[in-house]
């Protein structure tokens, strides 16, 4: 063997002796070079299809008033920075709102149209377009003031074991991040890539879709995406991911 050190490294990698993940590590770093290149290439990244669809939806009149997003907001670039600050406290409704909730709310209240279903292509197109405007910006969510209670609830939910398998989010994504579940490396649970294209889904999904997937994996009741509990957990996850650059549309396994 020409490169004994390389062989040693390979053996160690196969034995799972890789460094454990500590702190905030974007899932991007678990992708491998090929998938990283796919995420970085705007022409090859499948998530960009949703950005394009979102552009069309942004300009199309909808609902009883026949208004488009553009009629009120102007171009989608006006949404720059928004997705990096969500979820946030809505003082009027006295609840947290996330990206999906904002778009659905605008659709029904301002445009007087039926709000697009969660995880529908129509909603993902608009949310991905809006998130894309914040690509490269650091996640910064407010967790104090009126959001403090929700933040505490989200922190508790993260640590609470659940489901038939009796595992918490923290069991895997905090204490065992970087270890392998079967062939897959456990991520650090950072949510800076959403909405993102997940190979497992062969499609796009929101943060809440990922939370739902994890809940199903531990055989727990799903969290309905617009409930206070689900939004509180999303707030805590966004805070855990604070400072990481928003990558939407990211690619993940």
């Amino acid at each position: 063997m020409r490169h004994p050190l390389l062989l040693l490294w390979l053996l160690l990698a196969l034995e799972g002796q890789a460094e454990p993940l500590t702190g905030q590590v974007s899932g991007y770093h678990l992708l491998g070079e090929e998938l990283q290149a796919l995420q970085d290439d705007a022409f090859a990244n499948p998530g960009m299809l949703w950005v394009d669809r979102g552009q069309r939806a942004w300009n199309s009149p909808a609902g009883a008033r026949g208004t488009s997003c553009r009629d009120c907001h102007g171009g989608p670039e006006r949404m720059q920075g928004l997705a990096a600050q969500l979820p946030r406290w809505n003082a009027e409704d006295k609840r947290l709102e996330n990206l999906e909730g904002l778009v659905r709310n605008c659709r029904s209240v301002r445009q007087r149209a039926d709000p697009p279903a969660y995880e529908s292509d129509e909603l993902l197109a608009l949310t991905t377009l809006i998130a894309y405007q914040s690509r490269g910006l650091p996640l910064t969510v407010a967790v104090d003031g009126p959001a403090a209670d929700a933040f505490a609830a989200g922190r508790d939910a993260f640590a609470r074991r659940r489901g038939q398998l009796d595992l918490s989010c923290a069991d895997c994504h905090d204490r065992h991040a970087g270890a392998r579940l079967r062939g897959e490396t456990i991520s650090a649970g950072m949510i800076n890539g959403f909405p993102l294209y997940r190979l497992t889904w062969e499609g796009m999904g929101s943060r809440q879709r990922m939370i739902r997937w994890c809940n199903e994996a531990v055989r727990a009741e799903p969290l309905q995406p617009d409930t206070a509990k689900a939004l509180a957990l999303e707030l805590f996850l966004a805070w855990r991911s604070r400072g990481l650059e928003l990558e939407s549309p990211a690619i993940r396994r």
Binding site: R162, Q164, L167, E221
Partner: peptide, 24 residues
């Protein structure tokens, strides 16, 4: 430990309906 109790089913939080009350 991350290893669950495979014979136990009590004291579980939010178990999916299809698995409720059943040990693993």
């Amino acid at each position: 430990s991350i290893m669950p109790d495979y014979c136990r089913s009590g004291d579980r939080h939010r178990v999916a309906e299809s698995h409720r009350g059943q040990p693993i």
